[in-house]
């Protein structure tokens, strides 16, 4: 049976999560919630607006103000997915070792665009950043290659590492500098 376009959208969203995480189940019930929706079946355009929330349980959550999905011309495949206004993509991935708590990574931006031709998600905006327990990476533009699971920040980039990373490293541990002979009296 042919997939419906909403399912193709969610398949892509699920694929985005899978790029980060081994699968937890063979199928997932993935809700999309919004204040308003328009489905243009002739054009194949699906438009969700107002408090849009997409949840693929255990894999990822996407929230934004507006979500637009468009198919490729003359085919039934998803061409682009555009999320705008306060875009947050939250991705869960497994910890480094079995039994570790899952690691949550959040990407923030004003606009996220997925294009099927190159399978790339481009996140842009004034305060575009990726936050995970190791720190924050900021950039004017963050490009995520879905196929190769790589993040690229082509322009100005600032990385802020969490101090927690160095808590036990001794890297910033300072000696007491106490004089060998004790303090003068």
């Amino acid at each position: 049976m042919n997939e419906t376009k909403p399912m193709k959208i969610l398949n892509w969203v699920a694929g985005l999560g899978l790029a980060f995480s081994p699968l937890l189940a063979q199928e997932a019930r993935a809700p999309i919630e919004s204040d308003w929706a328009e489905m243009d079946l002739k054009a194949g355009v699906y438009h969700y607006s107002g408090n849009v929330r997409v949840d693929v349980p255990g894999l990822l959550k996407l929230t934004c103000g507006d979500l637009l999905a468009q198919p490729q011309k003359d085919t039934n495949r998803l061409d682009s997915l555009i999320a705008t206004t306060n875009v947050v993509i939250e991705i869960q991935r497994q910890g480094r070792n079995p039994g570790d708590a899952p690691i949550v990574m959040r990407a923030y931006g004003d606009r996220a665009v997925y294009t099927a031709t190159n399978e790339v998600v481009t996140l842009t905006g004034a305060d575009t950043r990726i936050v995970d327990p190791s720190g924050t990476i900021r950039g004017h533009e963050i490009v995520y290659d879905v196929v190769n699971n790589r993040v690229r920040i082509p322009r100005h980039k600032v990385t802020e590492l969490s101090a927690e990373l160095f808590k036990n490293s001794g890297l910033f541990r300072r000696p007491t500098n106490a004089p060998a002979g004790g303090s003068p009296k």
């Binding site: 063979q26 019930r29 809700p31 999309i32 308003w36 929706a37 243009d40 969700y48």
Partner: peptide
């Protein structure tokens, strides 16, 4: 062929997922 839903829209999709991820 146009459907507009004005309030409290909730779409639930059953998404088939492959068995293994592509984690690098």
């Amino acid at each position: 062929q146009r459907l507009v839903v004005s309030n409290k829209v909730r779409t639930i999709l059953v998404v088939p997922l492959p068995k293994a991820g592509r984690e690098n």
